[in-house]
Design a protein around this nucleic acid. Structure first.
Length: 108
DNA sequence: AAACTGACTTCTC
DNA sequence: GGAGAAGCCAGTT
């Protein structure tokens, strides 16, 4: 039975469909979850309930491609390493959204 | 129910 | 481009 469908659940679902080698911004995730303005809330959901490997929260970055928070071990460092391993384009410490920002349409 | 918090985003200086 | 402030949202206390 359904516990209680929350915005977070939508967020997790959205993030789960992000393919490796691509990343989405919190705003994009929030939009996919139902509210483009809920980027903040979306991030909170990840922190509160990282849902382990089931939800690749490491594929979610800030609007600038900047790597923000990461509850898992290693923090942003591990996050960057993971994205690099997946083939995500990086510009120093930030993700190159111009190449690695994922879109539902998969216009790659 | 009200107030506080936070892994955001955008504007301005 | 970096620093500061305001706005918005859902969840938690």
């Amino acid at each position: 039975m359904m516990n209680h469908m929350t915005f977070c659940d939508n967020v997790y679902q959205f993030i789960r469909k992000i393919p490796a080698g691509k990343v989405a911004t919190y705003g994009q995730v929030a939009a996919g979850a139902g509210n483009a303005k809920a980027a903040r809330a979306a991030g909170l959901c990840l922190k509160k309930n990282p849902d382990a490997p089931r939800t690749p929260c490491h594929r979610v970055v800030a609007a600038d491609g900047k790597l923000t928070g990461y509850s898992a071990a290693g923090g942003l460092l591990a996050k960057k390493d993971l994205l690099l391993a997946e083939g995500v384009f990086f510009l120093r410490d930030n993700v190159d959204l111009a190449r690695s920002q994922w879109s539902e349409h998969d216009a790659n």
